[in-house]
Simulated scan of single mutants.
Amino acid sequence: MEALLEVLERELMLAGRHSAMGPPGTACGPRALDRSAYVLLSRLQTDGPMSNGELAHAFRLDASTVHRQTGAMMRSGLVRRIPDPEGGMARKFTMTEEGAQRLAEDRSRIRSGLAAALEGWTSQDIGRLTEMLTRFNRSIETRDERPWPRPAPEPERAGTGGG
């Protein structure tokens, strides 16, 4: 088991490294989001407006770390602060049009890279990989008691993975 965990650890590290890269020959460019902005914007897109404290809890980060990240994102025009839509005292962050556009650009670039990397794979193989990664992530989320919100499956994605 230890040998399997050693290989798994290395492969997950490499997968994280590769996921930020686009298709071969494409530069990330000045508009590419850094990793923290990509993940924070993804969470805001799925969950809607969140306060600094909610973001810190969701990511298991110190509030000062989230404050620095959201401050940089505000200066870049990716997020803005709004009053709590539910009437609470804390102001919340929401994604701007610029943030949504840049997130969409990065997602497109990453998905193009994935498509290129998975060229020659069957849809069943891609479905199994997706199913196992989802199961793995949900196991971590259950253990940490911090589920990551996921959008409802699109009709063409539902049932993928053979199981």
Rank of each mutant, 00 (worst) to 15 (best):
E6M: 07
E6S: 07
V7L: 14
L8D: 01
E9T: 12
E9F: 09
R10Y: 04
E11Q: 04
M13A: 13
L14C: 06
M21E: 15
M21L: 12
G22D: 14
G22E: 03
P23V: 11
T26S: 11
T26H: 02
G29R: 04
P30C: 12
P30W: 13
L33D: 07
D34F: 04
D34K: 15
A37M: 11
A37H: 10
V39W: 08
V39G: 06
L44N: 13
P49S: 14
L55C: 13
A56T: 12
H57Y: 07
A58M: 08
R60S: 15
L61A: 07
D62Q: 04
A63D: 13
S64W: 05
T65V: 02
V66G: 13
H67C: 00
Q69A: 13
Q69W: 01
G71W: 00
A72N: 03
A72F: 00
S76A: 12
L78A: 04
R81W: 04
R81K: 15
P83E: 10
P83V: 06
D84C: 14
D84H: 14
R91W: 12
F93Q: 07
T94Y: 04
T94G: 03
T94K: 03
M95W: 09
E97G: 02
E98R: 08
A100T: 09
R102N: 04
R102S: 03
L103H: 15
L103S: 09
E105S: 06
R107F: 10
R107I: 13
S108Y: 10
R109D: 05
I110F: 15
R111D: 12
S112V: 04
G113Q: 08
G113E: 09
G113K: 04
L114M: 12
A116P: 01
Q124T: 13
D125T: 11
G127F: 00
R128F: 05
T130C: 01
T134L: 05
T134G: 07
R135S: 06
F136P: 02
S139M: 00
S139C: 06
I140K: 06
E141A: 15
T142S: 09
R143C: 03
D144S: 11
E145N: 05
R146I: 14
W148Q: 08
W148R: 12
R150C: 08
P151E: 09
A152V: 12
A152I: 04
P153H: 01
P153F: 00
E154D: 05
E154A: 11
E156V: 06
R157S: 11
R157F: 15
A158C: 13
A158G: 08
G159P: 06
G161M: 03
